[in-house]
Design a protein around this nucleic acid. Sequence first.
DNA 1: GAATGACCTGACAACGTTGTCGGGCCTCGT
DNA 2: ACGAGGCCCGACAACGTTGTCAGGTCATTC
Lengths: 358, 358
Amino acid sequence: MTSMSDVPAPRQASRRPTMRDVARLAGVGIKTVSRVVNGEPDVSADTAERVRKAADELQYEPNMHAGNLRRGDGRTHTIGLLVSSVANPFAAQVHRAIERVATERGYAVFATSLEDDPAAERRAITALARRRVDGYVVTPVRDDQSYLQVHLDRGNPMVCIDREPTGIDVDTVVTSNYDSAREAVRHLIAQGHRRIAFLGDLERIQTAQLRRDGYLAELADQGVSPDPALTVLDLHDDTSATAITRRLLTLPDPPTAIFSSQNLVTVGAIRALQQLGAEHDVALVAFDDVESGDLVTPRVTVVAQDPDRIGRLAAERLFARLDGDVSPPRQLVVPTRLVVRGSGEIPGPGRAVATGST
Amino acid sequence: MTSMSDVPAPRQASRRPTMRDVARLAGVGIKTVSRVVNGEPDVSADTAERVRKAADELQYEPNMHAGNLRRGDGRTHTIGLLVSSVANPFAAQVHRAIERVATERGYAVFATSLEDDPAAERRAITALARRRVDGYVVTPVRDDQSYLQVHLDRGNPMVCIDREPTGIDVDTVVTSNYDSAREAVRHLIAQGHRRIAFLGDLERIQTAQLRRDGYLAELADQGVSPDPALTVLDLHDDTSATAITRRLLTLPDPPTAIFSSQNLVTVGAIRALQQLGAEHDVALVAFDDVESGDLVTPRVTVVAQDPDRIGRLAAERLFARLDGDVSPPRQLVVPTRLVVRGSGEIPGPGRAVATGST
DNA sequence: GAATGACCTGACAACGTTGTCGGGCCTCGT
DNA sequence: ACGAGGCCCGACAACGTTGTCAGGTCATTC
């Protein structure tokens, strides 16, 4: 009866209805529609009902942008997230945790992957600022963040994650990189290792430096003099890590243990160990949990980060600021968890004589 | 000289400058500022220079929302992405591919994780519609998407990924679930297996059904009658998968091979195999590449999806629609790649007599 | 019976930007 | 000298919504 033809879908592009259209159909003023849509008081029950029916019939969806423009606080209920690289499962987990908190509060999240490119950081911030996000969660990639101060001054809070920012004083949520690296190395030394190789990410990445510093500090503390030949930096993917690890292991005086300080690098190291059949002879402790790290043989001992907690804390800090918290910025350090699985407990040469020595 | 104190940062919250402010400072009309900011012609070189300097001095950032509101096409240069679950590395990869294409075109991406919750799908769409995204990339979760037709009619294109939508006719980009499942099973049968277990995801998920259908069809085609006891559905995480796999393997007449049809389920299956020391005796082929699947022993043979290609194709389709493409919706099927690594080549009982039998 | 106040409603301006349009100036051709 | 046309520029309305405010109706109170 009502259908005029039997094509499955009405193809004509309908104009998007506005409050004006709803008002006309319901026979009320436009402001009354606004009141109903926003649940404001002072609308009689049956007027409200009429408006709701009209809105329903037109499939009206309010335009948040128009509303935010006029509204006093100008909030867009949107936050921006800058993540180092989506390739990294760590970042994906953080993203998810943040998104969950945001959704609960009616916020939407713009996520951008920087792929560790400093230029991308600026570009992303500009794009977000033009879209008037209320706040930012940033993984610093450039070596100076002072250019972000203006956004803080304008009332848009910011929380940095994973790495400490430079040039601005904001809430940060980071992993205990230095201490956890020390713990990993301490663990290996306790198994009797002295020649411990370090496999590090790009040196310009702060966490890579901190983990290396922790590595060196723990060696020093335990009276082990580090062999520069065993400290490798600037690895960023599994292929290069495999190559380097192979070279280290075929050295005249090879390491008896490896501390791998990043996810993909660990994968590369494991592959190299397997290729040389050394996986049961050379100990391995990895920073950051490697997916299904308990499936490989031997199972991988790791210092596991807690990306879910990092994301949640960052989001909570950001929303606290948006809610008006003006207390001094906090530096939150999220501890890691040493997960003992086997690869890190392969004994070193010092083990046999450990009790007798020193 | 110019600094009045030595606090590091000017704490006072500055009002955000508008075009009006820039215009006043540059001594020009507001429309002229608009012209300069948008690179429109008909502004003299030195006026433009003055405007640029003023904008710079005030650190002016144009308000895209206000612009979009007034602008003819009303485009927000924003797209929405609904992903099944961020926990899944597959989704993370897709997300990244889409984001890359979008960023190239000056688009920002709202990503929402549905965690396979049907209610979340509707909520997310509403939130995106109110923010007036230009288009959608959707992983269907509900069993009916016809409620989305209205957005199509209003000129907001949509591309579905991973699963076919129901009730709407839009571009889709999916993996060759059925055919690839058949290929996996064919591979196992070729190794001499007859008792092949199937481990499936939640039955309400379409891809899970397709993979099971492929599994059953290939068995039938090869004259193998399926044992219902070996077909398990509704697994969704590694823990339950481990439990089920253990039970299957301790059956009086256990399977000699396993086809695991989802990522996390595969992890659970591998764990069970290892726990029972059966990883070298029972063959395993998995759907969807499992991260570091070539690190475990034996290395895992998989039918690998191509999430990067899926994401890229989806984004390209969406932008083509936004650019005015009105050709009939396309169904793009992205093939998988059989990656032979070892676990799938463990011979079955039929193998020894394979040449003599039939 | 008039004043009070609670309740309900819509006209109007404003948010920050862009489309439209008209006007001033200058150059050029006649 | 004058009109045509190109270049530059700004006043004004409009996008879709919400804040403000004034006004109308009705029951209650003295």
